[in-house]
Computed example of a mutant assay.
Amino acid sequence: MSLEWLQRVFGAKVLQFVMILFTYETEEECNTIKDDLKRNPDLKQLLEKCGGRYLTCNKMMNNQSEMRDLMKKIEHLFNENQQQCYTGEMPNTASIRKKKLESSEHQCGHTSEMESNAHLNLILLGKKRAGKSASGNTILGREVFMSKKSSKSVTRDAAVKSGTVNGFPVTVYDTPGFYDPKMGTEEIQKILDKVLLKCESGPCAFLLVIKADSFTEEEIKTVEKIEKLLGEERLNKTWILFTRGDELQEENITINEFINDTEALKKLIQKYDQQFHVLNNKIKGHSDQARLLLVKILQRSFGIK
Protein backbone atom coordinates (compact mmCIF):
# COMPACT_ATOMS: atom_id res chain seq x y z
CA MET A 1 0.00 0.00 0.00
CA SER A 2 2.85 2.40 0.89
CA LEU A 3 4.66 1.68 -2.37
CA GLU A 4 1.48 2.23 -4.38
CA TRP A 5 0.99 5.55 -2.60
CA LEU A 6 4.61 6.54 -3.32
CA GLN A 7 4.13 5.78 -7.00
CA ARG A 8 0.83 7.67 -7.17
CA VAL A 9 2.37 10.77 -5.60
CA PHE A 10 5.97 10.67 -6.89
CA GLY A 11 5.64 8.64 -10.09
CA ALA A 12 6.73 5.13 -11.07
CA LYS A 13 10.42 6.12 -11.22
CA VAL A 14 10.49 6.65 -7.46
CA LEU A 15 10.95 2.90 -6.85
CA GLN A 16 14.49 2.98 -8.24
CA PHE A 17 15.37 5.25 -5.30
CA VAL A 18 13.63 3.14 -2.62
CA MET A 19 15.21 0.77 -0.11
CA ILE A 20 13.22 -1.19 2.50
CA LEU A 21 14.39 -0.76 6.10
CA PHE A 22 13.11 -3.56 8.37
CA THR A 23 13.36 -2.51 12.03
CA TYR A 24 13.49 -4.78 15.06
CA GLU A 25 13.85 -4.55 18.85
CA THR A 26 15.38 -7.96 19.67
CA GLU A 27 17.71 -10.35 17.86
CA GLU A 28 14.86 -12.86 17.82
CA GLU A 29 12.72 -10.37 15.87
CA CYS A 30 15.62 -9.83 13.47
CA ASN A 31 15.85 -13.56 12.79
CA THR A 32 12.07 -13.73 12.30
CA ILE A 33 12.29 -10.98 9.66
CA LYS A 34 14.98 -12.92 7.79
CA ASP A 35 12.87 -16.10 7.93
CA ASP A 36 9.79 -14.22 6.69
CA LEU A 37 11.76 -12.85 3.75
CA LYS A 38 12.41 -16.42 2.61
CA ARG A 39 8.85 -17.70 3.12
CA ASN A 40 6.46 -14.78 2.69
CA PRO A 41 5.51 -14.26 -1.00
CA ASP A 42 4.14 -10.75 -0.28
CA LEU A 43 7.47 -9.66 1.19
CA LYS A 44 9.32 -11.18 -1.75
CA GLN A 45 7.12 -9.24 -4.15
CA LEU A 46 7.69 -6.07 -2.12
CA LEU A 47 11.46 -6.49 -2.35
CA GLU A 48 11.34 -7.27 -6.07
CA LYS A 49 9.57 -3.94 -6.67
CA CYS A 50 12.44 -2.21 -4.86
CA GLY A 51 15.16 -4.09 -6.71
CA GLY A 52 15.82 -6.41 -3.76
CA ARG A 53 17.25 -3.53 -1.69
CA TYR A 54 16.75 -3.91 2.05
CA LEU A 55 18.49 -3.78 5.42
CA THR A 56 17.58 -4.96 8.92
CA CYS A 57 18.16 -2.32 11.56
CA ASN A 58 17.70 -1.98 15.33
CA LYS A 59 14.93 0.54 16.12
CA MET A 60 17.27 2.51 18.37
CA MET A 61 19.80 2.75 15.49
CA ASN A 62 22.62 2.23 17.99
CA ASN A 63 24.40 -0.58 16.13
CA GLN A 64 27.38 1.08 14.46
CA SER A 65 27.95 -1.86 12.13
CA GLU A 66 24.36 -1.62 10.84
CA MET A 67 24.72 2.14 10.36
CA ARG A 68 27.86 1.63 8.31
CA ASP A 69 26.06 -0.99 6.19
CA LEU A 70 23.17 1.44 5.71
CA MET A 71 25.51 4.20 4.52
CA LYS A 72 27.23 1.79 2.13
CA LYS A 73 23.89 0.61 0.70
CA ILE A 74 22.73 4.21 0.23
CA GLU A 75 25.99 5.02 -1.54
CA HIS A 76 25.57 1.93 -3.71
CA LEU A 77 21.98 2.96 -4.51
CA PHE A 78 23.25 6.44 -5.45
CA ASN A 79 25.83 4.93 -7.82
CA GLU A 80 23.26 2.49 -9.26
CA ASN A 81 21.21 5.52 -10.28
CA GLN A 82 24.24 7.00 -12.06
CA GLN A 83 24.88 9.31 -9.09
CA GLN A 84 21.41 10.84 -9.31
CA CYS A 85 19.04 11.57 -6.45
CA TYR A 86 15.28 11.95 -6.60
CA THR A 87 14.58 15.47 -7.89
CA GLY A 88 11.69 17.93 -7.66
CA GLU A 89 11.17 17.71 -11.39
CA MET A 90 10.12 14.05 -11.16
CA PRO A 91 6.94 14.54 -9.03
CA ASN A 92 5.89 17.49 -11.26
CA THR A 93 6.16 15.26 -14.32
CA ALA A 94 4.35 12.46 -12.48
CA SER A 95 1.59 14.86 -11.38
CA ILE A 96 0.91 15.95 -14.97
CA ARG A 97 0.88 12.32 -16.12
CA LYS A 98 -1.42 11.38 -13.21
CA LYS A 99 -3.95 14.10 -14.09
CA LYS A 100 -4.04 12.93 -17.71
CA LEU A 101 -4.49 9.33 -16.57
CA GLU A 102 -7.27 10.21 -14.12
CA SER A 103 -9.05 12.23 -16.82
CA SER A 104 -8.81 9.27 -19.21
CA GLU A 105 -10.00 6.78 -16.55
CA HIS A 106 -12.88 9.04 -15.59
CA GLN A 107 -14.05 9.12 -19.19
CA CYS A 108 -13.76 5.33 -19.45
CA GLY A 109 -15.41 4.81 -16.03
CA HIS A 110 -12.91 2.14 -14.92
CA THR A 111 -11.45 3.79 -11.82
CA SER A 112 -12.32 2.08 -8.53
CA GLU A 113 -13.42 3.95 -5.41
CA MET A 114 -10.07 3.70 -3.61
CA GLU A 115 -7.95 4.22 -6.75
CA SER A 116 -9.65 7.50 -7.62
CA ASN A 117 -9.67 8.65 -3.99
CA ALA A 118 -6.32 7.91 -2.35
CA HIS A 119 -7.83 9.06 0.92
CA LEU A 120 -9.89 7.54 3.74
CA ASN A 121 -12.56 9.14 5.95
CA LEU A 122 -12.88 7.76 9.49
CA ILE A 123 -15.95 8.64 11.58
CA LEU A 124 -15.71 8.15 15.36
CA LEU A 125 -19.02 7.21 17.01
CA GLY A 126 -19.94 6.22 20.55
CA LYS A 127 -21.25 7.32 23.93
CA LYS A 128 -19.70 10.26 25.77
CA ARG A 129 -16.36 9.63 27.54
CA ALA A 130 -15.76 6.49 25.47
CA GLY A 131 -12.46 7.95 24.24
CA LYS A 132 -13.40 9.12 20.75
CA SER A 133 -11.34 12.33 20.80
CA ALA A 134 -8.33 10.55 22.32
CA SER A 135 -8.63 7.86 19.64
CA GLY A 136 -8.67 10.52 16.92
CA ASN A 137 -5.42 11.91 18.37
CA THR A 138 -3.87 8.44 18.44
CA ILE A 139 -4.85 7.74 14.82
CA LEU A 140 -3.41 11.03 13.54
CA GLY A 141 -0.37 10.82 15.83
CA ARG A 142 -0.82 14.29 17.33
CA GLU A 143 -3.05 16.21 19.75
CA VAL A 144 -5.68 17.75 17.47
CA PHE A 145 -8.95 16.91 19.24
CA MET A 146 -9.80 18.22 22.70
CA SER A 147 -9.70 15.24 25.04
CA LYS A 148 -10.07 15.26 28.83
CA LYS A 149 -11.71 13.31 31.62
CA SER A 150 -14.96 15.03 32.45
CA SER A 151 -18.57 14.28 33.32
CA LYS A 152 -19.46 16.36 30.26
CA SER A 153 -19.14 15.40 26.62
CA VAL A 154 -16.17 17.35 25.20
CA THR A 155 -17.36 17.44 21.57
CA ARG A 156 -20.59 19.41 20.96
CA ASP A 157 -20.39 19.34 17.15
CA ALA A 158 -18.45 17.22 14.69
CA ALA A 159 -14.76 18.19 14.77
CA VAL A 160 -12.77 17.43 11.62
CA LYS A 161 -8.99 16.98 11.32
CA SER A 162 -6.83 15.57 8.52
CA GLY A 163 -3.41 13.98 8.46
CA THR A 164 -1.60 10.85 7.36
CA VAL A 165 -1.14 7.36 8.79
CA ASN A 166 2.13 5.95 7.49
CA GLY A 167 1.90 8.38 4.58
CA PHE A 168 -1.71 7.47 3.67
CA PRO A 169 -4.07 10.49 3.80
CA VAL A 170 -6.94 10.25 6.29
CA THR A 171 -9.61 12.62 7.60
CA VAL A 172 -11.02 11.92 11.06
CA TYR A 173 -14.49 13.08 12.16
CA ASP A 174 -15.00 13.28 15.94
CA THR A 175 -18.73 13.30 16.72
CA PRO A 176 -20.64 14.24 19.92
CA GLY A 177 -21.29 11.53 22.50
CA PHE A 178 -24.50 9.57 22.18
CA TYR A 179 -26.72 9.53 25.28
CA ASP A 180 -25.57 13.02 26.20
CA PRO A 181 -28.56 14.36 28.22
CA LYS A 182 -27.98 17.82 26.72
CA MET A 183 -28.38 16.55 23.15
CA GLY A 184 -31.47 14.92 21.70
CA THR A 185 -31.57 12.19 19.07
CA GLU A 186 -32.70 14.62 16.37
CA GLU A 187 -29.77 16.97 17.05
CA ILE A 188 -27.27 14.11 16.87
CA GLN A 189 -28.95 12.82 13.69
CA LYS A 190 -28.54 16.26 12.04
CA ILE A 191 -24.83 16.37 12.97
CA LEU A 192 -24.29 12.85 11.66
CA ASP A 193 -26.16 13.64 8.43
CA LYS A 194 -23.86 16.63 7.85
CA VAL A 195 -20.80 14.43 8.37
CA LEU A 196 -22.11 11.78 5.97
CA LEU A 197 -22.85 14.43 3.37
CA LYS A 198 -19.27 15.71 3.59
CA CYS A 199 -17.36 12.45 3.61
CA GLU A 200 -19.35 9.70 1.90
CA SER A 201 -18.44 10.92 -1.57
CA GLY A 202 -15.17 9.04 -0.94
CA PRO A 203 -14.08 5.88 0.94
CA CYS A 204 -15.47 5.95 4.46
CA ALA A 205 -15.27 3.72 7.56
CA PHE A 206 -17.17 4.04 10.84
CA LEU A 207 -15.41 3.42 14.16
CA LEU A 208 -17.77 2.50 16.99
CA VAL A 209 -15.76 3.39 20.10
CA ILE A 210 -16.22 1.26 23.24
CA LYS A 211 -14.16 1.28 26.45
CA ALA A 212 -12.42 -2.03 27.11
CA ASP A 213 -13.43 -2.17 30.76
CA SER A 214 -17.13 -3.08 30.75
CA PHE A 215 -20.01 -3.51 28.34
CA THR A 216 -23.01 -2.03 30.11
CA GLU A 217 -26.69 -1.80 29.20
CA GLU A 218 -26.13 1.84 28.22
CA GLU A 219 -23.37 0.81 25.80
CA ILE A 220 -25.61 -1.87 24.28
CA LYS A 221 -28.33 0.76 23.72
CA THR A 222 -25.75 3.18 22.30
CA VAL A 223 -24.67 0.58 19.74
CA GLU A 224 -28.32 -0.09 18.77
CA LYS A 225 -28.95 3.65 18.43
CA ILE A 226 -25.88 4.14 16.20
CA GLU A 227 -26.83 1.15 14.04
CA LYS A 228 -30.29 2.62 13.53
CA LEU A 229 -28.86 6.03 12.55
CA LEU A 230 -26.28 4.54 10.17
CA GLY A 231 -28.60 2.09 8.47
CA GLU A 232 -28.03 -1.53 7.47
CA GLU A 233 -26.04 -0.69 4.32
CA ARG A 234 -23.17 0.89 6.31
CA LEU A 235 -22.64 -1.90 8.84
CA ASN A 236 -20.10 -3.76 6.67
CA LYS A 237 -17.85 -0.69 6.90
CA THR A 238 -18.31 -0.30 10.66
CA TRP A 239 -15.58 -1.35 13.09
CA ILE A 240 -15.57 -1.77 16.86
CA LEU A 241 -12.73 0.33 18.27
CA PHE A 242 -11.83 -0.56 21.85
CA THR A 243 -10.08 2.06 23.99
CA ARG A 244 -8.16 1.65 27.27
CA GLY A 245 -5.84 -0.95 25.81
CA ASP A 246 -3.32 0.20 28.45
CA GLU A 247 -5.58 -1.13 31.23
CA LEU A 248 -5.83 -4.52 29.52
CA GLN A 249 -2.02 -4.65 29.36
CA GLU A 250 -1.72 -3.72 33.05
CA GLU A 251 -4.15 -6.50 34.00
CA ASN A 252 -2.45 -8.92 31.58
CA ILE A 253 -5.71 -9.55 29.70
CA THR A 254 -5.86 -9.97 25.92
CA ILE A 255 -8.60 -8.27 23.93
CA ASN A 256 -9.98 -11.69 22.93
CA GLU A 257 -10.22 -12.74 26.59
CA PHE A 258 -12.04 -9.50 27.37
CA ILE A 259 -14.50 -10.04 24.50
CA ASN A 260 -15.17 -13.70 25.31
CA ASP A 261 -15.83 -12.85 28.97
CA THR A 262 -19.07 -11.00 28.05
CA GLU A 263 -21.69 -12.84 25.99
CA ALA A 264 -23.33 -9.66 24.64
CA LEU A 265 -19.96 -8.31 23.48
CA LYS A 266 -19.03 -11.67 21.97
CA LYS A 267 -22.25 -11.64 19.91
CA LEU A 268 -21.58 -8.04 18.84
CA ILE A 269 -18.11 -8.91 17.51
CA GLN A 270 -19.55 -11.92 15.67
CA LYS A 271 -22.22 -9.67 14.15
CA TYR A 272 -19.50 -7.34 12.83
CA ASP A 273 -17.55 -10.29 11.40
CA GLN A 274 -14.59 -9.85 13.81
CA GLN A 275 -14.01 -6.27 12.61
CA PHE A 276 -12.44 -4.78 15.73
CA HIS A 277 -9.25 -3.13 16.93
CA VAL A 278 -7.88 -2.00 20.29
CA LEU A 279 -6.02 1.25 21.02
CA ASN A 280 -3.78 2.36 23.87
CA ASN A 281 -4.42 6.12 23.81
CA LYS A 282 -1.70 6.76 26.37
CA ILE A 283 0.90 6.17 23.66
CA LYS A 284 1.54 9.60 22.20
CA GLY A 285 2.72 10.45 18.69
CA HIS A 286 2.73 8.20 15.63
CA SER A 287 2.51 4.53 16.54
CA ASP A 288 2.21 1.14 14.87
CA GLN A 289 -1.27 0.61 16.33
CA ALA A 290 -2.74 3.29 14.03
CA ARG A 291 -1.01 1.76 11.00
CA LEU A 292 -2.42 -1.70 11.86
CA LEU A 293 -5.93 -0.24 12.17
CA LEU A 294 -5.63 1.37 8.73
CA VAL A 295 -4.31 -1.83 7.14
CA LYS A 296 -7.22 -3.84 8.63
CA ILE A 297 -9.80 -1.38 7.33
CA LEU A 298 -8.32 -1.13 3.84
CA GLN A 299 -8.02 -4.90 3.53
CA ARG A 300 -11.38 -5.94 4.99
CA SER A 301 -13.66 -3.05 4.03
CA PHE A 302 -12.14 -2.09 0.66
CA GLY A 303 -10.32 -5.24 -0.46
CA ILE A 304 -6.92 -3.54 -0.73
CA LYS A 305 -4.08 -5.97 0.03
Rank of each mutant, 00 (worst) to 15 (best):
Met60Val: 01
Leu268Ala: 11
Tyr54Ile: 03
Lys225Cys: 04
Phe145Cys: 02
Glu105Trp: 12
Val170Cys: 07
Met67Gln: 07
Ile123Gly: 00
Ser214Met: 07
Phe22Ile: 05
Leu124Pro: 01
Gly109Ser: 13
Asp42Cys: 09
Asn63Ser: 08
Gln189Arg: 13
Leu37Ile: 15
Gln274Arg: 07
Lys296Asp: 13
Ser103Ile: 04
Met19Asp: 01
Lys99Met: 14
Asn31Trp: 05
Val209Thr: 09
Leu235Ser: 02
Thr111Asp: 09
Thr138Glu: 01
Thr262Cys: 04
Tyr173Trp: 08
Arg142Asp: 02
Leu207Trp: 01
Ser103Asn: 12
Glu75Met: 11
Leu248Glu: 08
Thr138His: 04
His76Tyr: 13
Lys190Asp: 14
Pro176Thr: 03
Lys149Arg: 07
Leu37His: 02
Ser95Val: 02
Asp193Met: 10
Val18Trp: 03
Ile191Met: 09
Gln189Tyr: 14
Ser201Arg: 13
Ile259Ala: 03
Arg234Val: 04
Thr26Ser: 15
Val195Gly: 00
Arg156Thr: 05
Ile33Tyr: 05
Lys49Ser: 07
Arg142Val: 07
Thr185Trp: 06
Lys132Pro: 02
Leu230Cys: 02
Ala134Gln: 00
Arg8Thr: 04
Leu77His: 06
Gln64Ile: 13
Tyr179Ser: 13
Ile226Leu: 04
Thr164Ala: 11
Lys237Val: 07
Lys100Ile: 09
Asn256Gly: 04
Thr155Ser: 14
Cys30Ile: 03
Leu298Ser: 00
Thr93Glu: 14
Tyr86Arg: 04
Lys148Ala: 15
Phe168Trp: 05
Lys132Glu: 10
Lys44Tyr: 04
Thr262Ile: 11
Asn137Arg: 02
Leu268Glu: 09
Tyr24Ala: 08
Arg39Asn: 15
Phe242Lys: 00
Asp157Asn: 05
Ala264Gln: 12
Met19Pro: 01
Thr56Asn: 12
Thr155Tyr: 00
Cys57Tyr: 09
Asn62Val: 09
Val154Pro: 01
Ser153Pro: 11
Phe168Asn: 04
Leu55Met: 09
Gly167Arg: 03
Thr171Gly: 02
Gln107Val: 12
Gly184Arg: 06
Glu217Trp: 06
Gln189Gly: 03
Ala159Asn: 09
Ser150Trp: 11
Phe206Pro: 00
Pro176Ile: 05
Ala158Ser: 15
Glu227Tyr: 03
Val154Glu: 01
Asn166Asp: 14
Asn62Tyr: 11
Glu27Asn: 07
Gln82Gly: 05
Cys57Asn: 07
Arg68Ile: 08
Ile123Thr: 10
Lys59Gln: 08
Arg300Asp: 11
